[in-house]
Amino acid sequence: MTDPISKGLLPEGFRDRLPPQAEAAADLLRTLLDSVSAHGYERVSPPLVEFEDSLVTRLSSARPQDLLRFVDPLSQRTLALRPDITAQVGRIAATRMAHIARPLRLAYGGPVLRVRPAQVGPQREAMQMGAELIGSDHVDAVAELLGIALEALSAAGLADMSVDLTLPDLVGTLASGPWPVTTPLADVQTALDGKDAAALQGLDASRYSALIEAAGPAESALTRLKSLNAGGALDTRIAGLERLVATAAPHAAVTIDPTERHGFEYQTWIGFSVFAAGVRGEVGRGGTYLVRHPGGGEEAAVGFSLYVDGLVDAGLGASRRRRLFVPLDTDSEVSAKLRTEGWTTVSALTDADTPKRLRCDYTLDGEELIKL
């Protein structure tokens, strides 16, 4: 039987990025980070590995079996590879940067690794980029982050975007106030997850069917939400949605699904997902959440994560570089000057090297640049 290692095979869910996709990924990450940093977000770079118990404590709904783990030969403690960077930024904000005045604006970019691939693709390794504002979950803070995310994606060349807004805590808020339920709240939420109005009827929670009907384009969804008799419990949520719709509308189509919870388990009052034509799955997601402090306190925050791999797979970032063949014995100062002018120089090392062999578009003939 052929040894898979000798054939260059990789573990399931992992892949090599070759030229030009590898360069496209690096360029896109740089573009996204530059766009975010222009708004005052300072970059942090957490390690790829942390203690398992630290990651499990800070990650939403994380279990040890959900992490790629190994025993550290130095400390003899179990370490884990991060499946997400957001929680690491929260740790940094709550510990190493706890003394910095709030709001604290941080950005990051790097690889994450999962035990199992995401539902939208087979890959277990992904490039994640994002920004976090620690110290506030006010609607103005959310609007800032949502606007920055869309601006960064536009700078990366993405068009035809859509944003889906959701209210992760809405059902719980209504159940503890104007719309009490006699059955377990989890059953009501499960029925809403499945958009199952019949199940809500059987749970004696038929009034919650109105939330299913409220899902759709922003304008009609807001109209339906405003018509619900919820004793004023929706007023601040509706005002927040209106503010965010106004923020996103110039850049993307906006929809609202007030009961969507999948992937928003640790979000508080608002969550959002970004999609785009030609990109498989979500381009990114974000919302408000709580940062846990070592002493037991919590701090409001809002942030977003963008997924670079989907952008690369959609063909973004792959700019064609002008590769210029430099013959043997060319003065190095000539090549250096050409690089300052934006050329990518590829120098011949032997007489066997030719422009075609080195995949060049141009060749240098004396002082003349000749297109091939």
Score class of each variant (00 low, 15 high):
Ile256Leu: 08
Gly135Cys: 05
Leu68Pro: 05
Glu299Val: 07
Thr340Val: 15
His99Arg: 15
Phe70Thr: 07
Glu368Ile: 09
Gly172His: 08
Pro83Thr: 10
Thr223Pro: 05
Leu28His: 03
Thr344Leu: 15
Leu113Phe: 14
Gly147Phe: 11
Ser54Thr: 15
Glu242Gly: 05
Pro11Lys: 12
Leu28Cys: 04
Met127Gln: 14
Ser335Val: 14
Gly240Ser: 11
Ala248Val: 08
His99Cys: 09
Ala98Thr: 07
Met1Cys: 14
Val171Tyr: 08
Gln267Thr: 14
Asn229Glu: 15
Thr2Lys: 12
Arg292Met: 13
Val89Ala: 03
Lys337Ala: 15
Thr288Val: 05
Lys226Gln: 15
Leu165Arg: 02
Trp343Asp: 07
Glu52Thr: 09
His138Phe: 13
Ala87Cys: 12
Glu219Thr: 15
Arg15Asn: 09
Phe70Gln: 06
Pro111Asp: 10
Asp309Met: 09
Thr345Gly: 04
Gly295Ser: 08
Asp187Cys: 08
Cys360Ile: 01
Leu200Ala: 01
Leu316His: 09
Lys7Pro: 07
Ile370Asp: 08
Ala300Trp: 10
Ala336Gln: 12
Ser220Ile: 13
Leu174Val: 06
Pro111Ser: 11
Gly147Asp: 09
Thr344His: 15
Arg102Thr: 10
Val71Ser: 13
Val89Leu: 09
Tyr289Glu: 02
Arg285Phe: 04
Asp160Ser: 13
Met161Glu: 05
Thr166Trp: 00
Pro19Cys: 13
Leu200Ser: 00
Val334Pro: 00
Leu228Pro: 06
Ala348Ser: 01
Leu174Gly: 02
Ala198Gly: 11
Thr2Met: 12
Arg77Asn: 11
Arg102Ala: 13
Lys371Asn: 14
Leu228Asn: 08
Arg339Ala: 05
Phe14His: 13
Ala131Asp: 01
Pro217Asn: 14
Leu244Ile: 03
Ile148Thr: 03
Leu192Gly: 07
Pro294Leu: 02
Gln119Asn: 12
Ala352Ser: 13
Asp196Val: 00
Ala186Pro: 09
Leu165Pro: 03
Asp137Lys: 11
Glu52His: 06
Lys195Tyr: 07
Ala352Val: 10
Asp196Gln: 04
His138Gly: 14
Ala253Tyr: 08
Ala348His: 04
Ala25Arg: 07
Leu185Ile: 08
Leu67Pro: 01
Gly271Arg: 00
Ala230Pro: 02
Tyr266Thr: 04
Leu9Ile: 10
Gln88His: 03
Leu104Trp: 03
Leu290Ser: 05
Ala239Trp: 07
Ser176Asp: 11
Arg114Ser: 06
Asp353His: 11
Leu153Ser: 04
Leu225Lys: 03
Val181Ser: 02
Asp353Pro: 06
Asp235Gln: 14
Leu55Gln: 00
Val44Gly: 04
Leu55Trp: 01
Thr95Phe: 04
Gly194Ile: 10
Val181Gln: 02
Ser45Ala: 15
Thr223Val: 15
Val44Leu: 05
Arg207Phe: 02
Ala26Ile: 13
Ser6Lys: 14
Gln189Ala: 12
